[in-house]
């Protein structure tokens, strides 16, 4: 009689257990370590985060908490935010602020100096005068403000109208009418903070309203065509870096055939009216917050001023009505035929 071929019982149990463990490891290595936030709303726009690496799902929950925390401090649309309290306060009345507001105030002051006042977080009264406040903007206007009202408002739109007590974490206005708005750097700041939360992971791609940062691999980023927003102007390869774009097409209205956009110069008028013909600026560098501020500053100050960006470690793609220019080291591929490279 032929002897039955059987595995010793203990080895059989171990063999099956081992097989199950290997199966689970394979499945988790392929799918369990990648997490995506889905499409969510924050700062009045979208955010999307994709992370690869162990513990990615847990990080997404931390990100959601962080974004709510920042928005609660700096949103002009939330009545109890630090910014709303500052804007409603009287001159000489200190307002205690949270860590995000404190950090953004200090950075705004630095960038105000670095951009020769082109990035100005104290321009909010002019933004409101031109009806570009995110809380009330509709894209439609019958008229524009008078030169007199613009000149009067411009007088108190300066960061010098605010002081910050570091020890008490208090911001005090020196003019009742002065107001702050961190809309020009808050989304970029949030992207940078999320990057910190993603440290130790294999890959991440963070996108808050077009303020993008990535690490751990090459990503293909499209740049919106400023005169045909349903198509792309071109694509760039981004690796371990951030990008932010400002353009005159992002929030604008037309009065009497003239386009008025939300980026206000230090003369009190929307860009393109009195300064230069830049309609889009995409800045690439290490910090999404700085990219955010510099993209605004380039549109306000112009292409000649932008030559200084590489010295700061940043590069830029500047688009005018009929041409584009690259300053710095950028792997850019144009996908349009409307603009020539200058």
């Amino acid at each position: 009689m032929k002897k039955k071929n059987t595995l010793p019982k203990t080895n059989a149990v171990f063999g099956r257990f081992f097989t199950v463990i290997i199966t689970l490891i394979i499945i988790f290595s392929l799918s369990g370590c990648t997490a995506e936030s889905g499409e969510n709303i924050a700062f009045g726009t979208f955010y999307n985060v994709k992370i690869s690496g162990a513990g990615a799902t847990a990080v997404l929950k931390d990100i959601d908490r962080l974004l709510q925390e920042i928005e609660q401090e700096v949103s002009t649309a939330i009545a109890e935010s630090d910014i709303s309290k500052i804007n409603a306060s009287s001159a000489g009345q200190p307002v205690r602020v949270g860590q995000h507001t404190a950090f953004l105030f200090k950075k705004s002051l630095e960038l105000y100096g670095a951009t020769d006042r082109a990035f100005n977080a104290a321009l909010f009264p002019l933004v409101e005068l031109w009806n570009f406040s995110p809380d009330t903007f509709t894209g439609v206007a019958d008229s524009i403000p008078s030169d007199t009202s613009i000149a009067e408002t411009l007088e108190y739109c300066a960061m010098e109208n605010f002081s910050f007590d570091i020890d008490r974490s208090e911001i005090t206005k020196h003019d009742d009418r002065a107001k702050l708005d961190f809309g020009g750097i808050a989304k970029g700041y949030a992207v940078d903070k999320i990057l910190e939360l993603c440290q130790g992971k294999k890959q991440a791609l963070i996108n808050i309203g077009g303020n993008i940062a990535t690490f751990g691999g090459d990503k293909t980023i499209g740049i919106t065509h400023p005169r045909d927003t349903s198509s792309l102007f071109g694509v760039i390869a981004l690796q371990d870096a951030a990008i932010a774009t400002s353009g005159d097409y992002q929030r604008y209205y037309t009065v009497g055939g003239v386009r008025y956009n939300h980026i206000i110069t230090d003369e009190g008028y929307p860009t393109g009216i009195t300064n230069n013909d830049i309609i889009s600026a995409s800045v690439i560098g290490s910090s999404a917050m700085v990219c955010d501020a510099l993209s605004t500053a380039v549109i306000v100050r112009g292409a000649a001023w932008a030559e200084v960006l590489p010295q700061m470690g940043y590069s830029v793609i500047i688009v005018t009505k009929d041409s584009y220019k690259i300053i710095g080291d950028i792997d850019f591929e144009s996908t349009q035929t409307t603009h020539r490279r200058s």
Binding site: G44, T45, G210, Y249, Q250, H262
Partner: peptide
């Protein structure tokens, strides 16, 4: 939020700001 998917682009910068 309405989003197009499928293709070679990982993300887009610029575009309309929502309010």
């Amino acid at each position: 939020i309405v989003i197009i998917r499928g293709g070679e682009i990982d993300a887009i910068t610029g575009g309309h700001h929502a309010v």
